[in-house]
Simulated scan of single mutants.
Amino acid sequence: MRYAGIVVAGGSARRLSGVDKPALSVGGKPLLARAIHALEGAERVIAVGPRRAGFDVVWTREPVPGTGPVAALAAGLAFVPEDVEAVAVLAADLPGVRRSTVDRLVAGIGDGDGAVLVDATGSRQWLLGAWRVAALAAALPEQLENAALRRTLAGLRITDVPAERGEADDIDTPEDLERHR
């Protein structure tokens, strides 16, 4: 299945004193570069957030920056090629995401609307998924700003894809960053 990729690369990183999370280095590589590398098989990669030099992607921002992942998702969807059936959606703070993660998510869509990575506790990781473009676009609420991503996507037919070790980890706190350095 042909797919595009959207990397949600905004956010305020409040628990990390407002640092530019996607620029943080883990294993000598910025987190944003890890997400973009995981999308290597995508027809096009769209990054939603402040423009950062050195990345060969389409950059965009939500109409009101900082209004959440649903608004960012809608902004990214505007740049998905019309002939692409699916879109992989990744947060930009995932140190363990790999191309194999994205491949399993895209394959997991099957006959449904989307697939989401599920961590070891059984929690769906909403910013680690793959979706049929039409289903995702239809699920977006009229009011995008500050809409809850879980509520937006929960009504879709979703396949849960079990995470392999470390794939569902994210960097939200200084302790998370230290654990992955």
Rank of each mutant, 00 (worst) to 15 (best):
R52Y: 06
A53C: 02
G54I: 07
G54W: 07
G54N: 09
D56G: 03
D56T: 11
D56V: 10
D56Y: 04
V57E: 05
V58P: 00
W59M: 14
W59G: 10
T60V: 11
T60N: 11
T60S: 12
R61H: 09
P65M: 06
G66V: 11
T67R: 15
T67Q: 13
G68R: 06
P69K: 15
V70H: 06
A71H: 08
L73G: 01
A74Y: 06
A75F: 09
A75M: 13
L77S: 03
A78C: 10
A78R: 15
P81M: 12
E82Y: 01
D83R: 05
E85I: 02
E85C: 07
V87M: 03
L90H: 03
A91P: 04
A92F: 02
A92I: 08
A92H: 02
D93F: 00
D93G: 03
L94A: 07
P95G: 11
P95N: 11
P95A: 08
P95T: 07
G96V: 11
V97K: 06
V97F: 00
V97H: 07
R98V: 11
R99S: 15
S100G: 08
T101P: 07
T101F: 04
V106T: 09
V106D: 08
V106S: 00
A107D: 11
G108W: 08
I109L: 05
I109M: 10
D111H: 08
D111N: 09
D113Q: 07
G114W: 12
G114Q: 12
A115R: 11
V116A: 13
V116D: 08
L117G: 01
L117W: 04
L117A: 02
V118W: 05
D119M: 03
A120L: 04
A120N: 00
A120W: 08
G122M: 01
G122T: 12
S123K: 12
R124G: 15
Q125P: 00
Q125W: 02
Q125C: 15
Q125Y: 03
W126G: 02
L128F: 04
A130Y: 01
R132M: 08
R132W: 02
R132C: 01
V133K: 11
V133H: 05
A134D: 12
A135Q: 01
A135P: 02
A137H: 12
A137R: 15
A139C: 02
A139T: 03
L140E: 02
L140S: 03
Q143V: 11
L144W: 03
N146D: 14
L149W: 05
R150V: 10
R150L: 01
A154D: 15
A154V: 14
A154L: 14
L156Q: 14
R157L: 13
I158Q: 01
T159C: 08
D160G: 14
P162K: 03
P162I: 04
P162W: 02
E164H: 06
E164A: 09
E164I: 06
R165Q: 09
G166D: 14
G166T: 07
A168K: 06
